[in-house]
């Protein structure tokens, strides 16, 4: 039973991907899309989803939208500008190193979101996740501080706040 309940969100998600990728919504697309999405949902539902209930909470979607807007229009732009400036500067002011930042989220998807957000912004790359899932090790192009809490404020605090709202 739980397998079928878990299959539903995966099926809906994959159906949306199917329709967007196909780019049309005729009867043929909808019928084949539903069949494919149901099969994929039943096969992969138990692997992808741990808690179906979270999908029903609408505020998560709004937080997700806010996360995307903040991420693409503020965080990414700032990070790109910063690293491009460093590349084009004749003196190339880099000060690389690996710092350790604490991370306080519950679900694995939050860790994925935070780590991917960090890696996707130029200037920071997640090198390692501590086995107890409480620390990330970040390669930082310009190490301002080696104190974990201050580094967290500079790198991941906002991502973590959003990720907690969306995935936890």
């Amino acid at each position: 039973m739980s397998r079928i309940i878990r299959a539903i969100p995966v099926a809906i998600l994959t159906f949306i991907v199917y329709i967007v990728f196909t780019g049309s919504a005729t009867h043929f697309d909808i019928v084949t899309g539903v069949i494919g999405a149901v099969i994929v949902g039943i096969v992969f539902g138990s692997v992808v989803i741990t808690n179906t209930y979270k999908f029903l909470q609408l505020q998560r979607y709004f937080w997700g939208l806010a996360y995307a807007l903040y991420y693409f229009f503020i965080a990414e732009v700032r990070a790109h500008y910063d690293v491009i400036k460093r590349i084009l500067n004749p003196k190339m002011p880099i000060n690389p190193g690996i710092v350790k930042i604490p991370i306080d989220v519950a679900s694995d998807y939050s860790i994925l979101a935070v780590a991917n957000s960090i890696t996707n912004t130029p200037g920071t790359v997640t090198v390692y996740v501590h086995p107890n899932k409480k620390y990330l090790y970040i390669n930082w192009i310009d190490v301002v501080t080696r104190e974990p809490e201050e580094a967290r404020k500079a790198i991941s605090y906002v991502f973590e706040k959003f990720a907690k709202k969306v995935f936890d």
Partner: peptide, 8 residues
Amino acid sequence: PMIIIVAI
């Protein structure tokens, strides 16, 4: 699942 659905 996304890769499989795109393949389908």
